[in-house]
């Protein structure tokens, strides 16, 4: 029973407490780039979750085989293979999403979240725990992207998942679906997250921006003080 609970915790921590985008500030590039529509956000989130799940499982299974010195190239190859795989799957089954994600699909390879989780979690934990961690982080990322996409689509285009919003539809604020709006929306959402999380027991989450991305050691020390 106790074992089960920790696995559930592995999943839930990625969604709220250590949300990769809003709390740990990883993977900013896709967050900003593809969220002009809520649907794109979900697609990107799920694609990333798939890659994360695959790479976390493989890396944690191989963690004792891969020599420490070449682990970074090895991780990169594993991640890139899964990205190629998801690229084929999307091209075959959801071509419209494939077109709208475009180059950012390839760029999942260098998404800090995936590399960060591989380095921080999968290379140190067992297969099942790593899979749970990947699912949680992936869902957290998807939810953040969905939120961003919804806000930008509703305000910027006056519609949401195909529904048109009465007043905004006639007066869309185009700026929100432009690059500048992406920065602005993300800034606002992070500010709101800060405000909300500060009411609860104060927890110092120090992440040196994405500076720590490739090594992500700062994030690991700052994020997981359980």
């Amino acid at each position: 029973m106790a074992e089960k609970k920790t696995l559930a915790q592995e999943i839930s921590k990625g969604i709220i407490k250590e949300n990769p985008t809003l709390v740990m500030l990883l993977g900013m590039c896709p967050t900003l780039a593809v969220t002009t529509q809520a649907m794109n956000g979900i697609g990107m989130g799920l694609a990333t979750t798939f890659v994360l799940l695959g790479s976390n499982i493989v890396i944690s299974a191989l963690r004792k085989v891969i020599p420490d010195k070449v682990r970074i190239p090895a991780f990169i190859v594993i991640i890139a293979s899964f990205v190629t795989l998801i690229g084929f799957l999307l091209e075959g089954f959801v071509p419209s999403l494939y077109d709208s994600l475009g180059i950012y699909l390839t760029l999942i390879t260098v998404n800090c979240i995936i590399f960060g989780r591989a380095e921080m979690f999968a290379s140190k934990n067992g297969v099942i725990a790593s899979a749970c961690d990947a699912v949680g982080m992936g869902l957290g990322f998807t939810m953040a992207l969905f939120l961003m996409g919804s806000v930008r689509e509703i305000i910027g285009a006056g519609q949401w998942m195909g529904l048109s919003i009465p007043v905004l539809h006639d007066n869309p604020m185009l700026l929100f679906i432009m690059p500048a709006g992406g920065f602005f929306t993300l800034g606002m959402i992070i500010a709101i997250t800060n405000k909300l999380s500060r009411k609860k027991p104060p927890k110092e989450i120090v992440c040196g921006g994405c500076e720590g991305c490739p090594m992500a050691e700062n994030c690991g020390k700052g994020g997981s003080n359980e």
């Binding site: 500030l25 700026l175 432009m178 690059p179 500048a180 709006g181 992406g182 920065f183 602005f184 993300l186 800034g187 606002m188 992070i190 500010a191 709101i192 800060n194 405000k195 500060r198 921006g209």
Partner: peptide, 21 residues
């Protein structure tokens, strides 16, 4: 206080991005 750090940076980036538009 709420905006200190990353949020303020992102909003500033948004303004710089507007200027590049």
């Amino acid at each position: 206080e709420t905006f200190k750090g990353v949020p303020a940076t992102l909003i500033a980036a948004s303004i710089v991005s507007v200027s590049f538009m």
